[in-house]
Computed example of a mutant assay.
Amino acid sequence: MAEPKDENFLDDIDEAEAETYEVEVEEIDDDAAEVDALKAERDELKDKWMRALADAENARKRADKQRREAENYGGAKLSRDILPVYDNLKRAVEAAGEKTEENAALIEGLELTMRELLNTFRKHGIEPIAPEVGDKFDPNEHEAMFEAPVPGTKAGEIIQVSAEGFMLHDRLLRPAQVGVSSFTG
């Protein structure tokens, strides 16, 4: 092939050669377009895969949290329903009075039953809230059943405990029912 006479050597190339070059350029352009399309499709599929992976991980974490909560707090309704049994046993022990020869076995049986019930509660994460007279009222753990001005006490001090409260792990199952002083003198 001869040296091009002017700066535009394509003018010197015969038509057949020019067509060959054009076909090759078109094929390269087509290949490049196809590569770009495949890269875009790959990136889109990778993005979808990453999102699906993240969704699966979030679903696993959610299911694990729900399982733990069901394990820890699933029995809350049953626990609340059993609390009156504890209250009645406690009242029965208090009503029995002092131990005598006649009632010693009865009182011992009630106390043993109450201890066993408390052990079962603890085994399942239920702990009593047992405020004492003179403790400060805590609205997160106590329910004020009444308020009365009692000399010698401070406002917000517990003056009577009507019923113990209970926690289920870190959640309030039932607040302790208390009377609170309103005395400000």
Score class of each variant (00 low, 15 high):
residue 99 K to P: 09
residue 130 A to V: 13
residue 184 T to H: 06
residue 76 A to P: 00
residue 69 E to T: 01
residue 143 E to K: 09
residue 143 E to Y: 12
residue 112 L to Q: 13
residue 163 A to Y: 10
residue 77 K to R: 13
residue 74 G to V: 08
residue 16 A to S: 03
residue 41 E to F: 07
residue 37 A to W: 03
residue 81 D to Q: 15
residue 76 A to I: 07
residue 151 P to K: 14
residue 94 E to P: 06
residue 181 S to Y: 06
residue 178 V to T: 05
residue 54 A to F: 01
residue 36 D to I: 03
residue 69 E to W: 02
residue 64 D to Q: 12
residue 49 W to S: 07
residue 30 D to P: 00
residue 23 V to R: 14
residue 81 D to L: 14
residue 12 D to I: 01
residue 179 G to V: 08
residue 3 E to D: 09
residue 20 T to C: 03
residue 152 G to K: 09
residue 8 N to P: 00
residue 28 I to E: 06
residue 171 R to T: 00
residue 38 L to F: 08
residue 146 F to I: 03
residue 141 E to G: 02
residue 172 L to Q: 05
residue 60 R to V: 01
residue 53 L to I: 00
residue 145 M to G: 04
residue 101 E to I: 04
residue 165 G to P: 12
residue 138 D to P: 02
residue 147 E to V: 13
residue 35 V to W: 06
residue 183 F to V: 05
residue 178 V to A: 08
residue 40 A to S: 15
residue 182 S to W: 04
residue 64 D to S: 13
residue 169 H to V: 01
residue 171 R to A: 00
residue 5 K to H: 04
residue 156 G to V: 02
residue 74 G to W: 08
residue 120 T to F: 10
residue 16 A to D: 05
residue 1 M to A: 07
residue 164 E to D: 15
residue 99 K to I: 06
residue 88 N to V: 04
residue 76 A to F: 00
residue 28 I to C: 03
residue 84 P to D: 05
residue 90 K to C: 04
residue 122 R to G: 06
residue 67 R to V: 00
residue 14 D to L: 01
residue 154 K to G: 07
residue 11 D to A: 10
residue 157 E to F: 02
residue 136 K to W: 10
residue 131 P to V: 08
residue 103 N to Y: 10
residue 157 E to K: 05
residue 146 F to P: 01
residue 117 L to T: 11
residue 26 E to K: 12
residue 153 T to E: 03
residue 62 R to Q: 01
residue 36 D to M: 07
residue 177 Q to R: 15
residue 71 E to N: 08
residue 180 V to T: 08
residue 63 A to T: 03
residue 132 E to I: 01
residue 6 D to W: 05
residue 135 D to L: 05
residue 67 R to N: 02
residue 25 V to D: 10
residue 164 E to S: 08
residue 38 L to M: 11
residue 137 F to Y: 15
residue 178 V to Q: 11
residue 3 E to S: 07
residue 12 D to L: 03
residue 179 G to A: 08
residue 24 E to L: 14
residue 135 D to E: 10
residue 173 L to N: 01
